[in-house]
Design a protein around this nucleic acid. Sequence first.
DNA 1: CGCATTTAGTATCGAGTCGATACTAATTCG
DNA 2: CGAATTAGTATCGACTCGATACTAAATGCG
Lengths: 190, 190
Amino acid sequence: MAVDRLYSLLERLGNLLRTEERAAGLRHGLQPVHLQALRYLQSCNRYSNTPAALTEYLGLTKGTVSQTLLLLEEKGLLRKEADTEDRRVVHLHLTDAGRTVLKEAIPPALFKQALAGLPGGGEALEEALTGLLRGVQAANAQRSFGACSTCKHFRREGPGRFRCGMTQEPLSREDSVLLCREHEAVPPGH
Amino acid sequence: MAVDRLYSLLERLGNLLRTEERAAGLRHGLQPVHLQALRYLQSCNRYSNTPAALTEYLGLTKGTVSQTLLLLEEKGLLRKEADTEDRRVVHLHLTDAGRTVLKEAIPPALFKQALAGLPGGGEALEEALTGLLRGVQAANAQRSFGACSTCKHFRREGPGRFRCGMTQEPLSREDSVLLCREHEAVPPGH
DNA sequence: CGCATTTAGTATCGAGTCGATACTAATTCG
DNA sequence: CGAATTAGTATCGACTCGATACTAAATGCG
């Protein structure tokens, strides 16, 4: 049955990818999940750099993520900052050391190589996976973490000038490509 | 960059899948890797039901897999059998209890649901993922674990009668769909 | 043949993940 | 104002995983 084959494929690719990542993080003393957390923090926007958002992104429990963050903070790869509005909330920022580690440890060389042999540079694959992820998230009542500019709250106000229709805050061109926790896809037919 | 997005997608899907699997195995006291091992043993052929083959399939070290197998044996989900030819080799067989657990714990309900919403039933996705896996394996000097009937050593001898050109053993129709450790893809253009 | 090498597998150890449970503090809701 | 919710932390135990070291069987090479 096709579903079972697909399941196996994704599972195996996930395993191999994690094994790769384990090796990549080894000389920094980092586990796969640590690199994943750092990468998320690198690519999320200022509404989404919190433990809660990361928890949902990774699909783990908040206790588990709290531990992970503790370790990354001890290693000096990230820094915590209290929110000024809501004093329960903590914002996570990569330190220079964190960014350096990411640059060194992330390039999935083996993976890039495999991708190069794919027809069309993997465009079709990306599209299909995006759809699948969306489906899994919908079935799981999870957030999508899409890029800001693809959100239904995204407003264009001029060349390089944007605004979030939800928070009313202005957004730069750089902001617009970051992942947002509050992201909601534009409904089909727009 | 497209490679980075693809990497993230696969990583996230892998995470969510593992979280699902963790929940599924919970009431049997099984971890994701245990279910993966059982599933492999269910779908591999008689040349490939060994610790070494499983080790390569999962991409772990042989020590780690040895431990996993010990646990599964203690739980009565599989049974070890010495090879009669090569006395170093052990063959792994699912017990009835093992098969029962698989039937109960595997159905990735959430996943099937997500897949149903995919255009074309995921045919395109399966093809693309297969290609990617092949690429990763090639880059890693790993075996492919394809179905027997798609191997270059597979010989048709009549309706429902086949033979492995490597071991010269006859193969049944059931054999021909199982995963083989010695699998080698038919070179393109055949 | 006979000794080195390779291969299959196991044993043991320590670092670390992860979920579960229980907790605090701040916010929101009625 | 008080109850419920939300963000986050602390602690614990079961378990994974790689590293290292080991045994036993098979193979290869002089």
